[in-house]
């Protein structure tokens, strides 16, 4: 397993602000009870069916199927931290749950989360259309092998009526430090809620989420086509990117030395501290990232999303190769971040 996913290389359009674009499709099998109601026999049968279908996709898709109970709890946690699967998938009991991931970790399929199948495409930068194209193709080849629950009137049928129709959630993960610093974030988010978009802090809540990382997604899944939903979200995202750039320019023009002082301090702490909680790390990394984007700080080989992942408890423990207590994690986290930012090869 490569430590980082392909999207974390931050190569896509506007990837300095739009950390990732994600398309998630929910699909269920016809004449099969939804996952929350499966019994041992029916669960086993449907899991076998899906394992066969994914295996039968062939080498072009390169999907690696794994039953969740064959993975260690730390490994499961890492998959969540990499955004490959949802926290709900690793909730116990995990028997009859599975995931399939491609080599680049751009494509993942969750089996028996809330729905029988959740197909997810995760790309770097603002690439919602590109992600949809892949999701659409994968969905087609799966449908050649599986009988989907579909209704001409209501579309794809899901365990929860909030997801029916296209059964699609499109989302972007955005880094908005300047909108938060200039106190415009809550206003922007209120506007988004009014037009049917959901915003949440990725770490923590509300408009002062730790690390200034937010996820924006469509709330509604029925009534428009996938392309229309995606177009709406992409348009909104472009506007937010524009406002964030504008706020950054404003800070540079008006905050001068205060801004430089702030990002240099963040850099200083990250390159020298010996104990670092995950909250503090996220907060400082966000400021360092802002400093790098504005050319106030040197670039690092590791990208922001890679460094962010490095602060997560599961990922730290998988790197260490064993379980770590919270206090140990705070030390190892500080050690890893210090060496990554100083450009040293990682401590083993």
């Amino acid at each position: 397993m490569a430590p980082f996913s392909a999207w974390m290389q931050a190569k896509g359009p506007d990837a300095d602000i739009v950390l990732s674009s994600r398309i998630r499709l929910a699909r269920n099998l016809k004449n099969t009870v939804f996952p929350n109601r499966l019994n041992d026999e029916s669960a086993k049968k449907m899991l076998d069916q899906i394992e066969w279908a994914i295996g039968d996709l062939g080498s072009g898709w390169n999907m690696h199927f794994q039953k969740l109970d064959s993975l260690s709890p730390i490994h499961r946690q890492v998959q969540v931290e990499k955004h490959l699967i949802s926290p709900a998938l690793i909730e116990e009991p995990v028997k009859y749950k599975a995931l399939a991931v491609d080599e680049k970790e751009s494509i993942s399929i969750m089996v028996n989360e809330e729905d029988h199948l959740r197909i997810q495409i995760l790309l770097s930068g603002l690439q919602l259309k590109e992600a949809w194209t892949i999701a659409d193709q994968l969905d087609d080849v799966l449908e050649q092998r599986l009988d989907y629950a579909y209704d001409n009137h209501s579309g794809y049928l899901t365990a929860c009526p909030t997801n029916i129709g296209t059964a699609m959630r499109a989302s972007v993960m955005v880094h908005l430090p300047a909108l938060v610093l200039t106190r415009q974030a809550s206003q922007v988010f209120t506007t988004l809620a009014q037009i049917g978009m959901v915003v949440r802090g990725l770490y923590g809540e509300g408009s002062d989420a730790v690390g200034n990382i937010f996820q924006i997604s469509n709330q509604v899944s029925l009534g428009l086509s996938e392309e229309e939903f995606i177009h709406n979200l992409a348009t909104v995202t472009q506007q937010i990117v524009g406002r964030e750039r504008h706020a950054r320019q404003y800070l540079q023009d008006n905050a001068g030395v205060v801004l430089t002082d702030r990002v240099e301090r963040a850099w200083g702490l990250l390159t020298h501290a010996r104990i670092m909680s995950s909250e503090e790390a996220l907060r400082l990394l966000s400021e360092v990232k802002l400093g790098q984007d504005l050319n106030l700080l040197p670039q690092t080989e590791s990208t922001f999303t890679q460094l962010t992942l490095l602060t997560r408890p599961g990922f730290l423990q998988s790197l260490a190769g064993h379980e770590l207590q919270a206090a140990e994690r705070d030390q190892i986290r500080a050690q890893f971040l210090r060496s990554k930012l100083r450009g040293e090869s990682g401590p083993e």
Binding site: D139, S154, G155, Y156, G165, V220, L222, G223, L224
Partner: peptide
């Protein structure tokens, strides 16, 4: 929930 009851999106090829 959706402001609509009519699906206008993708139609699966087989189903």
């Amino acid at each position: 929930l959706h402001g609509s009851v009519e699906h206008h999106g993708k139609v699966p090829k087989r189903a």
